[in-house]
């Protein structure tokens, strides 16, 4: 018989270790949940029909946040116009066309590293290239292009992952039936991989909607009296609106409720999109037959 700890000491240690782990997990989850609850609770006080459909007035103390909501939607949608085609194209190249070699390694490393570049650096880049370099000024267009580039690595990586999970045999089957490479991709690979690729795109859309620093640098107006009627107008957006109300001017305390109201709208938008993506992904995994 082997000697050592008494079983009781071992059991106590086990109990303690697991208790500590559970405690950490629960405390973390509870703090995070409380925070969300706080935002929802205080945000709801601000939300009514006017808040969602009117322009702000009286130094943001009255009126609504319609231009910020629309501005965020424009910016997020515009960024996808930039990043989806490029990201999907790049992913298709990497999975289906590229031969392994230094070029592919460099591309993949570049994409992976770009995902970790701070968003404010993308903001600087957008400022130097689009706002100043191309002379677009602080505008919807500059903002969309900057956010598009910002989300490009996310979109590319997610699409590549989805394409990679499509079995090689699908491609071989199509090629063996006389399809050329592009036909095989368009008719067999893309339909199979598209839901996964779109999941990544939705997550990127959420991220674009919530980004603040790059928009401050490239697109944001603190207040604009009208909705943008061209790509070269400045826009308001939800995140910058929160930021401005919370940090500028003499009415920080008076607009507190509206800050949380705006935060709630933004959070609903971003978390809603993420939730959609998570649900789609869960369904995909369950439905996948290969």
């Amino acid at each position: 018989m082997l000697l050592g700890y008494s079983p009781k000491a071992r059991k106590n240690r086990e109990w303690l270790a697991l208790l500590a782990l559970k405690l950490v997990a629960y405390v973390a989850l509870i703090i995070l949940a409380l925070m969300i609850f706080y935002i929802v609770f205080h945000g709801f006080k601000a939300i009514n029909f006017d808040f969602l459909t009117k322009f702000p007035s009286d130094f943001m103390r009255k009126g609504g946040i319609l231009p910020a909501i629309l501005g965020t939607l424009y910016l997020a949608a515009g960024s996808m116009v930039v990043s989806l085609p490029l990201g999907f194209g790049a992913a298709i190249y990497l999975t289906d066309y590229a031969k392994p070699g230094p070029l592919v390694s460099i591309i993949r490393l570049g994409v992976a590293n770009l995902a970790a570049v701070p968003s404010v650096v993308f903001g600087l880049f957008g400022l130097a290239l689009f706002v100043v370099g191309f002379g677009f000024g602080r505008s919807l267009l500059s903002g969309c292009l900057t956010l598009g580039l910002l989300t490009l690595p996310t979109v590319t990586a997610a699409a590549e992952e989805a394409l990679r999970q499509t079995p090689q045999s699908f491609r071989e089957a199509a090629l063996a039936l006389g399809a050329n490479r592009w036909q095989a991709i368009r008719q067999v690979v893309l339909p199979a991989a598209l839901p996964g690729m779109l999941t990544g795109a939705i997550l990127a859309l959420g991220r674009a909607a919530g980004e603040t620093a790059p928009i401050i640098l490239t697109a944001a107006a603190a207040f604009s009296p009208a909705l943008p009627d061209s790509l070269f107008n400045e826009v308001m957006s939800l995140p910058t609106h929160i930021f401005n109300m919370a940090t500028n001017g003499a009415f920080i305390e008076q607009t507190r409720v509206r800050q949380f109201g705006t935060a709630l709208v933004l959070m609903a938008l971003v978390l809603g999109l993420s939730l959609v993506a998570i649900v789609i992904r869960a369904k995909l995994i369950r439905r996948r037959k290969w």
């Binding site: 460099i106 570049g110 770009l114 570049v117 490009l152 590319t156 050329n180 490479r181």
Partner: peptide
């Protein structure tokens, strides 16, 4: 490769290079 094949391939390669080329563009501009 048919011309269409070559065309699509070139398009995707350009996408890939743009996706990664940002890295260098950002560096150059900064």
């Amino acid at each position: 490769l048919s011309p269409a094949e070559k065309g699509s391939r070139l398009f995707f390669l350009i996408c890939a290079i743009l996706a990664m080329g940002q890295m260098f563009l950002i560096m150059v501009f900064l």
